[in-house]
Design a protein around this nucleic acid. Structure first.
Lengths: 210, 210, 210, 210
DNA sequence: TATGAATGAGCGTTCATTCAT
DNA sequence: AATGAATGAACGCTCATTCAT
């Protein structure tokens, strides 16, 4: 790879990283291209060498972000039973959130873009497939638990998956708005209760304390 | 109330209603004052007789919206036991969502405003108190259930409340993005499982089917 | 007419007049909206209250310009025979040119716009109808002269009209580029020769002098 | 000439030819250096190896264009009398126009450049000398005709030359804008009439119809 | 009180030009 | 010599806000 090509790759990453920071901090509309350029240490025109427009940059950032999240989710360990892996997925996702709490704001912007007629189309379909991926991952774990008998047959895997993914989003939102919100503890207790609701009577262990 | 004051009140409401529609459809940044003025059937200047700036109008809308939601939530019936009232609150909230699905988009904008440094301060505190209200409402119901013995002492009311409120937000989001998402069924099954997890063993009823 | 409406009309004219000056001096591309705004003593935004875009303003100017020219051409006197009126039309047009020589440059821009794919459509058709009007005016005079016997039947009215209109354009161009070019004298001699070519032998008067 | 120099010459020509095409199609302002580079099959930077700036390239193109035209005009045959050679010059020029009608648009741009304060100086003087050359060529033919008695002494050679050159420009303009305009026929009839006006009575032949 | 014509700060985007490779 | 990645000055256009009517 020539020096030129190498630089090009680096710059592309620098721009996306800068965009992530700036969009997260100020939101899409209030972020100016010049802000992103400065944060990326490139000229304003350079942004346009890599992205046709501000909106295109934003969408590219979305894809980049989603790919990373998807990659992390797919990288879940294969050991342990369904319940253990469900707990792991849950806590790993929330930990990842804490590590990147500063960039969570951009997610609200992605959602908003998925609702805005001007940007809806591309964002919505990408967003839907991301949610599908997450719900399927959870639903598969629940189904596995039902098959192995650690979760009751009464459990509706798809609904639990949707609710759990939704709860994660919803709690992250609360934690993001209120830094005093103790996400890790709260979410663990919540998951305890939910799992208790999926566990057959004879296998239930009491949940001690809170 | 004089006729003049009455008119003023009507116009004020018309402006807020128009703002709700327009902001919901296009998002805050893409909404123009002229759009709102036209939707409210008033002149552009009139908006500024009632609100000092676009951001002020947006915040006024937020308060108006939150008051309505809070009022609906507070208007929950007092009959039935804790579980029944929890289910009622849950389904009433989600039904209200379906009735106003077109204006849900504005909520994303409120969230985004709560994250944007330029608007953060007023939005965030109002948002926090709204979430507090909802969580307290749910937590009180759970605590009542624990006191009356229909929920186990193991249950952590605060965590369940936070998770449940979060799950509602999260599922509404999924439903809003994907009109094929069957929110009512999914959420009911999810709540079944969660309540099952709070119910003492000896009182559990099996959840039949699907 | 209210004061407001009155002002609106005045401003519209001021903008067009300013556009004429600026476009004439600098050409379309080099003219900035702010230049025109300043020349018209209005704010930059005001231009856009009256014209959707720079190109629209330019086209509006074209129409305004053409209307005036067409009006002048149509206002030719009705007295005298065909030859006299042909000479009058010719000298009146060239005199008008001299009075507005500073704005002739804009005409080159109109022509260029009629050739530019981006603007071609509207400009070309308007330009064609303007030329049609002029050629028809001249051709009618020539035909009248043929009918009354002061011009020979050999004369092809349409060709002479096209050539004469073309010669006027072409000579104005030369005069505009070279202020030493003696348009009035040259054009008169040229017209003498042409008219001589249309005059039957037995009616010809010698052209005296240089 | 070394191979290197030869290549350089070829590239120079390729750039000018590409510039001619692009400027003709889009006009000066709307033509981008990258368009010309691509049309010439060279890199963007290469243009700047041969021309200091876009305007310089445009001026170089002008000179190249004018040289070719001047060359063609100077290459007129020496046989025949003044009238025959005048007719030949006339039809040869118009034929050349038809062959290159696609690049006539660039001529409007040259004219415009001669009027634009930013570019006026160099373009205007070159343009003037070009017109001088043409007018002199025609005037010399007319003077020759006067000397040999086929044109009347009354004829003002300079005026006829200016008018004829102007008429050629003006008619080409009309033909260029309106592809239905029958330039060859029209211009021939027009020249017939003009020549008739220069011909002594006793030598006149009737012009038979059109 | 209500209006909308007028305004100009502000920003996305373009593109001629430069210069490291 | 040839290239094209990088740059930033420059400009068209938008729209929140003002204020004369």
């Amino acid at each position: 790879m020539s020096k030129r090509e190498e630089n090009k790759g680096k710059k592309q990453t620098a721009i996306l990283a800068a965009a992530l920071t700036v969009f997260s901090q100020k939101g899409y509309a209030a972020s100016k291209i010049i802000d992103i350029a400065r944060a990326a240490n490139v000229g304003k025109g350079t942004i346009y060498e890599y992205h046709r427009s501000k909106e295109d940059l934003f969408f590219a950032l979305f894809q980049w972000y989603v790919e990373r999240i998807g990659g992390e989710a797919a990288a879940q360990p294969m050991e342990g039973n369904a319940e253990e892996r469900l707990r792991l997925f849950f806590s790993a996702t929330l930990s990842a959130f804490y590590e990147e709490i500063d960039t969570f704001g951009v997610f609200l912007e992605f959602w908003a873009a998925a609702g805005n007629p001007a940007t809806r189309d591309r964002f919505r379909s990408a967003m839907l497939s991301m949610y599908d991926q997450f719900r399927t991952l959870v639903a598969d774990l629940v189904d596995e638990g039902r098959a192995t008998g650690i979760f009751t047959k009464d459990t509706d895997a798809v609904s639990v998956a949707a609710g759990l993914v939704g709860a994660m989003d919803g709690m992250m939102l609360q934690a993001w708005m209120d830094r005093k919100f103790d996400l890790l503890t709260v979410s663990e207790h919540f998951l305890d209760t939910l799992i208790s609701g999926m566990t057959p009577h004879d296998q239930r262990k009491p949940i001690h304390d809170n």
